[in-house]
Design a protein around this nucleic acid. Structure first.
Lengths: 133, 133
DNA sequence: CTCTGTGCAAAGCGTTTGCAAACGA
DNA sequence: TCGTTTGCAAACGCTTTGCACAGAG
């Protein structure tokens, strides 16, 4: 069993039933838009407010407990923070897959070319999933 | 001199003064938010409407004449469509630099891992520019 | 001359805010 | 008990729409 109660508290967030369910939904679904999250939350909390969703998503973002993924030509989705990874997105069905890629050489190359000190990379690959091909 | 008149027409867009100026502003500035573009347009067309900006940006996006760049923790910016490239962004001053990187091996690796057919990659690197370091 | 584009005002929509009641620790 | 969170309703801000006039081709 996951004990997100403790993990929420470690991020200075009280473990309310709503927050535990948001966390659980993100854990089970991987990535969710606000809209989809709201639909799912309604099943458990029939009178939950969108304002509650937004407030919690924003608090969780500030605490780096979750992260936003901005997708070309689509709504943002949110995911629990974990090791760095790239996203592969099917432009047909919208499915999102996480993949672990080593971007070290790409990043060091980019640092050289740009003269920037780089501390974060966001890579989104778009294409067609197996089912939709 | 750039003749964007012809290029706009090739994208089925009439070459109005407003559109030529939007194009010119993007050419000169590289990347611009709606807000910044509006400010700049106001200098040339003191009574231009934000609605005109939005309508044209949307038409240009549909025509693939320009592209949107979604940036983590910041507003989207728009740029003239050109060869594929990555973006490096300074989280201090917001400066955006284009760099040409060969992502072929990364992409083929990702295709293998995900079983997707990949046709587009968006890479955004965040860090600190030379000036802000 | 015809059809498209512009500017203005109003409408729309996703997100945020203020507040009283409920709740977690 | 005390400070935080929730749900509701109202407010906000960005984006889109409808329409009459102006302008490109």
């Amino acid at each position: 069993m996951n004990n997100y109660t403790e993990i929420l508290r470690q991020h200075n967030l009280k473990a309310t039933p709503q927050r535990l369910e948001i966390t659980n939904a993100l854990y089970l679904n991987g990535h969710m838009s606000i809209e989809r999250l709201y639909e799912i939350m309604l099943k458990k909390f029939s009178s939950i407010s969108l304002a509650t969703i937004y407030k919690n998503i924003n608090l969780m973002l500030e605490a780096s407990f979750i992260q936003e993924v901005k997708i070309p030509d689509a709504k943002s989705v949110y995911e629990l923070t974990k090791e760095a990874h790239a996203h592969v997105i099917c432009s047909e069905c919208g499915e999102i897959v996480d993949i672990e890629l080593n971007l070290d050489s790409v990043v060091s190359n980019a640092a050289k070319l740009s003269n920037y000190k780089i501390n974060k990379s966001d890579l989104i690959l778009s294409g067609t999933c197996k089912n939709c091909q």
